[in-house]
C-alpha cells in the first residue's frame, strides 16, 4: 500500500508545482492591472490617447507617439527580416553545399543567443556613428529598425527552417519529376506548403520586436516625438518604461504599468494568433 501512497503524494506535489507555474502568468497580469488601476480609474483610458503630450509629472499622459514608435520599429524590422530570414532558411536547405549549410546554421543559432545588450552596444558604437556621418544626428528610427532586424532574423530563420524541414520529401520529388526548376519548385511547391510555419515564425519575430527593450533603447535616440523621417530619433514604449521606471512615482509609475499592460496585450494577441496558425496546420 505504501508505494501507491507515495505515488499519490507525488501526483499532488507535481500538480501543486504546475499550478504554481501556471499562476505566474495570472500574477503578472494581475499586478499590471492592479498597478495601473490607479491612474486608469482617475483619468480613464482615453486620456492616454488624447492628451497633448507625454509629460507625466505635470499630468499629461499621451502614449500615441511612443505607440507609433513601437509600431514603426516593429514593422520596419519585420519587413526587412522576413525576406532575409526566409532566404537564410532556403539557403541552408536548398542552396548551400552541405558543410557550408551546417556552418551557416550554427552561426544563426549563435546569433539567436547573443544578448540584446550586445546588439545594442554594437549599434551604439558602430552603427549610430555611421548613420550620424551620413544623416545626423545618428540615433534614429533607422538605427533601431536595423538593429532589431538583426535581432529577429534568427527567430524567423530558425522557424522557417523548421517549417521547410516538415515539407514532405515527395512534394519536392514530384516537382522534380514534373521538370520544375529549383526556384519554381520552391516558389510553387515548398514555400506554399510551409506557409503556416513561416507565418508563425514571422508572428513570433514580431512579438520579439515589439517587446525588445535594450537594443532599441540604446540606438533609438529616445526623443518622444512623431518621427518625420527615418533619421529622426524616436522612443518606443519599452524604452520609455526602462528609462523612467527608475524614478517614477504615483500616477507616473502607474502610467508606466499601463504601457506595460498595452505591451502585454499586443504580445498575447500575437502569440495567440501564431498558435492558431500553427494549430490550423496540424488539423489541415
Amino acid at each position: 500500500m505504501s508505494p501507491s501512497h507515495r505515488d499519490r503524494a507525488l501526483g499532488w506535489v507535481l500538480r501543486a508545482t504546475a499550478a504554481l507555474v501556471a499562476a505566474i502568468v495570472v500574477l503578472i497580469v494581475a499586478f499590471l492591472v492592479v498597478e495601473s488601476a490607479g491612474v486608469l480609474r482617475k483619468l480613464g483610458p482615453l486620456r492616454f490617447l488624447t492628451d497633448p503630450s507625454w509629460h507625466p509629472t505635470s499630468g499629461s499622459f499621451d502614449l500615441t507617439a511612443m505607440l507609433l514608435g513601437s509600431l514603426l520599429v516593429t514593422v520596419g524590422a519585420v519587413v526587412l527580416a522576413t525576406p532575409a530570414g526566409v532566404a537564410s532558411a532556403l539557403f541552408c536547405r536548398y542552396y548551400a553545399p552541405a558543410p557550408l549549410a551546417k556552418l551557416y546554421g550554427r552561426m544563426i543559432e549563435v546569433l539567436a543567443g547573443i544578448p540584446s545588450v550586445i546588439y545594442g552596444m554594437w549599434g551604439l558604437m558602430v552603427l549610430v556613428p555611421l548613420i550620424g556621418k551620413w544623416q545626423p544626428p545618428g540615433p534614429s528610427l533607422l538605427a533601431a529598425v536595423l538593429i532589431l532586424t538583426l535581432m529577429i532574423l534568427p527567430t524567423i530563420a530558425l522557424f522557417s527552417d523548421a517549417a521547410l524541414a516538415k515539407v514532405p520529401d515527395r512534394y519536392v520529388r514530384g516537382a522534380a519529376a514534373l521538370g520544375l526548376t529549383r526556384w519554381a519548385t520552391l516558389r510553387g511547391v515548398v514555400l506554399p506548403a510551409a506557409r503556416s510555419g513561416l507565418f508563425t515564425g514571422v508572428l513570433l519575430g514580431m512579438g520579439r520586436a515589439i517587446g525588445e527593450t535594450m537594443a532599441v533603447l540604446m540606438v533609438c535616440g529616445n526623443v518622444v516625438q512623431t518621427p518625420g523621417s527615418l533619421f529622426d530619433p524616436i522612443r518606443p514604449l519599452t524604452a520609455n518604461i526602462a528609462l523612467e521606471m527608475g524614478y517614477a512615482l504615483g500616477d507616473h509609475r502607474s502610467a508606466l504599468f499601463v504601457s506595460g499592460l498595452v505591451l502585454m496585450g499586443m504580445v498575447v494577441v500575437l502569440v495567440g494568433t501564431a498558435e492558431l496558425v500553427s494549430r490550423g496546420r496540424l488539423h489541415g
Binding site: 502568468v25 500574477l27 503578472i28 499586478f31 517587446g211 525588445e212 527593450t213 508606466l256 502585454m264
Partner: peptide, 12 residues
C-alpha cells in the same frame, strides 16, 4: 509566459 516581453517581467 514565453512571449511576455522582458521589460514586463521587470515591471512585475
Amino acid at each position: 509566459l514565453a512571449g511576455v516581453p522582458s521589460i514586463v517581467f521587470g515591471l512585475f
